[in-house]
């Protein structure tokens, strides 16, 4: 076999794993399918004798990918059901397919592809993307390489940004998917997620709108004064004593949790 033949055989094999109509075409007329993918006639002949095995490979690849998606997004997968999840996976494989070498990242790649489609699909629950994003948040925070950093030792200062633990994530949902209600309530929700420094477990905080706005600005690297001012603007509030007291209390709580580590160095 020449290098060109090897190239064609490998490429055709991979296409058989990804193309949505491949199973039907493999069953109907494998030699023609392979010919269309440039496979050498002699190689087509031997591959055509292993049609069932080629289909087994495809089933194994898809089953493994479907399995890791269901493992990381269990509630999402249960809502979709196996047939629909397989259809989604088939479309994902055709249009995008995983690109990361890390198997555990397949669910995130899948969701990034699926979310815009699911938002537009009236046959799916409106909360599905929020739910899937929330399920994936667990993995994202758990696996975050950042987190547990030493505190800068600098006191908070209005003119400086703050140092937050590297595992912190802010998520906004249209549904309260973090609660156990099924189906979840339609309720604009903001969640601060972080990895506890001692137990290394995921912790979640439901935030008020102004706490969420403040976190968003601080995570974006704004100085504390700017973050407070912009939070007021976002929330249509004035910087009253009540507002400042509430934000000070919130920041103190984050400090107690090991989420807020002081001023950025």
């Amino acid at each position: 076999m020449t290098d060109d033949r090897e190239h064609a055989a490998i490429t055709a094999f991979a296409a058989a794993m990804c193309e949505p109509d491949a199973p039907a075409r493999i069953r109907d007329d494998l030699p023609t399918y392979l010919a269309e993918h440039g496979v050498d006639p002699a190689d087509r002949e031997i591959l055509a004798r292993h049609r069932e095995q080629l289909l087994v490979y495809r089933a194994m690849v898809h089953s493994r990918l479907r399995g890791v998606i269901a493992e990381y997004l269990p509630r999402t997968a249960a809502i979709l059901g196996k047939p629909r999840l397989q259809r989604e996976l088939t479309a994902f494989m055709a249009e995008r397919a995983p690109h990361s070498v890390y198997f555990r990242r397949v669910p995130g790649e899948f969701l990034a592809w699926a979310a815009p489609r699911w938002h537009l699909d009236d046959t799916l629950p409106a909360h599905l993307v929020d739910l899937a994003s929330h399920e994936l948040l667990d993995q994202e925070v758990h696996d975050s390489v950042a987190g547990g950093e030493a505190a800068s030792g600098l006191p908070l200062a209005l003119e400086r940004p703050v140092q937050l633990d590297g595992s912190v994530r802010l998520r906004r949902y249209a549904f309260a998917v973090q609660r156990s209600e099924d189906p979840p309530t339609r309720e604009s929700t903001a969640i601060l997620a972080y990895r506890d420094r001692e137990s290394l477990r995921l912790r979640l905080l439901e935030l008020t709108p102004r706490a969420a706005a403040l976190c968003a600005h601080l995570l974006a690297g704004a100085a504390l004064q700017t973050a407070l001012t912009d939070t007021c603007t976002d929330c249509g509030e004035v910087m009253s004593d009540e507002f400042l007291a509430a934000m000070a209390s919130f920041l103190a709580d984050l400090g107690d949790r090991g989420v807020l580590l002081g001023a950025a160095s």
Partner: peptide, 9 residues
């Protein structure tokens, strides 16, 4: 594309 399986050569 990463198919996450051990495919033959």
């Amino acid at each position: 594309k990463q198919l996450h399986d051990l495919l033959p050569v």
